[in-house]
């Protein structure tokens, strides 16, 4: 019977479909879905080590009375609020200049500016730590040029330690974002720029009124992924500050605090899981923002 045969084919097709995706789904279920639900469950428990008791929303209440958590939250927010706009602007400017084929050595410049993306987060953090020591190469250069009169305490003063973290992330990720803009710019019709040039529109105005609006979707996308990345900041601060987030918790991020609560001291699994959900909520909000903005476009 024809109908029976199609039914069999359909089943065969369906079975194959499931077989191809099964290994991934299984792994995702065990190593992603289960842990994220388990974290939520744990966040209702308090106690140290394996001795835990149900605490309801006790952990959430504890958050607002925990100065270290509030500091880590403030630091994390400060990092992305200050760093992401600086980096995105820099990346845009670099991409706009690098899109000019008439300049010489463009290939070299592109590769050079992209190179930091290849460095491992640990390796570059360690390099930055050595470069920014009190008598280090950066302070020597600043003193020699006369920009400062006394060496800056990059690793010892709370304000400058934050600046150092921001400088470091900007170094590592500007080229990464630039590549996205460069790829998008190459899809823009060059004649728009030619026309604007003939009309006497200056370069800065071409950048502000043509380049930036044309790249709006990519800018939004990279802003969101950079922000999500910065919310989860860990490797850099851990390796710049020997895992302490110092000086005086000035560079302590939420991820580092969770790590310390779980693996440095007597573990507070429940409370640490609650803090991890603060990150989940922040990331989820940003992702929905991205989703809605993307939907508006289409």
């Amino acid at each position: 019977m024809a109908a029976g045969k199609t039914g069999g084919l359909k089943r065969y097709y369906d079975l194959n479909g499931w077989l191809f995706v099964a290994p991934s789904l299984l792994l995702i279920a065990i190593f992603l879905v289960y842990p994220i639900l388990r974290s939520l469950y744990l966040s209702f428990f308090s106690g140290k080590g394996m001795i835990m008791k149900f605490a309801g929303f006790g952990n959430v209440a504890r958050l607002w009375n925990d100065p270290v958590f509030l500091q880590a939250l403030t630091n994390t927010v400060t990092f992305f609020v200050v760093q992401v706009p600086i980096m995105i602007t820099l990346a845009l400017m670099l991409a706009a200049v690098l899109n000019n084929d008439k300049l010489k050595f463009i290939g070299f410049f592109r590769t050079a500016i992209f190179l930091p993306c290849v460095a491992s987060l640990v390796a570059y953090s360690v390099l930055f730590k050595s470069m920014f020591s009190v008598d280090g190469v950066v302070n020597s250069a600043l003193l020699a040029v006369g920009l400062v009169s006394t060496p800056i305490g990059w690793l010892t003063e709370p304000f400058w330690a934050k600046v150092l973290v921001i400088l470091a992330i900007t170094w590592r990720w500007t080229g990464y974002n630039m590549i996205f803009y460069l790829a998008a710019l190459q899809n823009i019709d060059k004649s728009i720029y030619e026309a604007a040039k003939i009309d006497g529109v200056p370069a800065w105005a071409r950048f502000v009124y043509i380049t930036v609006p044309m790249l709006k979707p990519v800018i939004l996308f990279t802003t969101i992924i950079s922000t999500i990345g910065t919310i989860q900041l860990f490797d850099e601060v851990y390796n710049l500050t020997e895992g302490r987030g110092g000086p005086a918790n000035a560079t302590l991020t939420l991820s580092l605090y969770i790590y310390n609560l779980t693996f440095r001291f007597m573990p507070s699994f429940g409370y640490a899981a609650t803090i991890s959900y603060v990150i989940v909520i922040m990331v989820a909000l940003l992702s929905f923002l991205q989703f809605y903005a993307a939907r508006d476009r289409s």
């Binding site: 842990p35 994220i36 744990l42 790590y259 803090i275």
Partner: peptide, 8 residues
């Protein structure tokens, strides 16, 4: 985020 997975 990985922070929400690492404890479990």
């Amino acid at each position: 985020p990985f922070a929400a997975l690492m404890i479990p």
